[in-house]
Design a protein around this nucleic acid. Structure first.
Length: 290
DNA sequence: CAAGTGCCTTTATC
DNA sequence: AGATAAAGGCACT
């Protein structure tokens, strides 16, 4: 199966899967292998051709957000020379439409960890609590269900390398499992309301909530502020803030909620309805330049 | 080689 | 309100 990408549909599979938004994709000789819910499939890109197996075209279009008019997105967030460089370098990078449950747990695990470590944790979680699925002669695992993680023993979660995140994952899984948490409801709420819902989960603060909203709940205006984005904004958008705010934020490693809100609000107001895309371009650009 | 730093932060406590 | 510490463990310097 394949899809032809026309000029109005730029896409860069490699950048999209390597920019640190999803953690469970594996590359085996030219093919990218992914597990999304109970589905295992592989995909590769040959210039304007997307080739894939074990999945239909509609799913590919949905998951990789090929329905986003990326050229429009580019022109809307193209506010200055700096973001323009990022766009020109990374054009084709798309936000994914991930599964909200997996995204929620993934970003609870992501706090204060490197991407390599996050991948390791999620790999361990899936191997221990997910269902094994063989595809193309390779073993994969589905992501554990809420029920499975809600009833998991703490020691087993600790063995996955979760550390202090263990209780957050367990408690969050219990909430989602028990009172049928409605991700659809959050999806339909507006940005601020949706974020307020998410931060009620243990282990979910403003930053983690913004990641979940952007990557799995259709909130393209969400603008997660991590250390890289903080540095990027402080460095390239200095004049948009008071001197005192800049020096205070630069000298400390972590952000207070108030400082987070200031940077987050700047991002959403400055870049507009597709601020999340701007964030992804700035983030990946910051990490790969140098 | 030991020790320090950083990691897509949140929470508890002062 | 706002600052500060603590929380796995691993990679890197």
């Amino acid at each position: 199966m394949s899809i032809r990408l026309d000029d109005s549909t730029p896409f860069d599979l490699e950048a999209t899967l390597c920019c640190g938004q999803a953690f469970r994709w594996e590359k085996h000789s030219e093919w990218w292998y992914g597990v999304v819910r109970d589905r295992v499939f592989k995909i590769r890109q040959n210039n304007d051709r997307l080739l894939f197996e074990n999945v239909d075209a509609d799913f590919v279009k949905t998951y990789f957000r090929l329905d986003d008019d990326l050229l429009t997105v580019h022109s809307r967030i193209d506010k200055d020379e700096h973001i323009r460089k990022a766009i020109n370098t990374l054009k084709g990078l798309r936000v994914l439409r991930q599964d909200p449950w997996e995204c929620l747990i993934s970003y609870i695990c992501a706090t204060y960890k490197s991407i390599a470590a996050i991948k390791r944790m999620l790999f361990n979680l899936s191997r221990k609590f997910g269902e094994r699925v063989c595809f193309d002669g390779v073993d994969f695992c589905t992501f554990p269900t809420p029920e499975r993680l809600a009833t998991a023993h703490s020691v087993d979660l600790v063995k996955c390398g979760l550390g202090y995140r263990t209780k957050y994952v367990r408690e969050t899984a219990k909430i989602v499992n028990k009172k049928e948490w409605e991700f659809e409801h959050v999806k339909n709420a507006d940005y601020k309301e949706a974020r307020a819902e998410l931060v009620r989960f243990p282990g979910v603060g403003l930053k983690v909530a913004d990641c979940i909203l952007l990557f799995s709940l259709e909130k393209l205006e969400a603008f997660p502020v991590d250390v890289w984005i903080k540095r990027s904004i402080i460095e390239h958008y200095t004049s948009h803030f008071q001197e005192e705010f800049i020096s205070r934020t630069m000298s400390k490693r972590s952000l207070t909620n108030k400082e987070y809100e200031r940077l987050n609000t700047f991002g959403r107001e400055y870049f507009g309805e597709y601020a999340g895309y701007a964030q992804e371009y700035l983030y990946h650009y910051e990490r790969t330049q140098f």
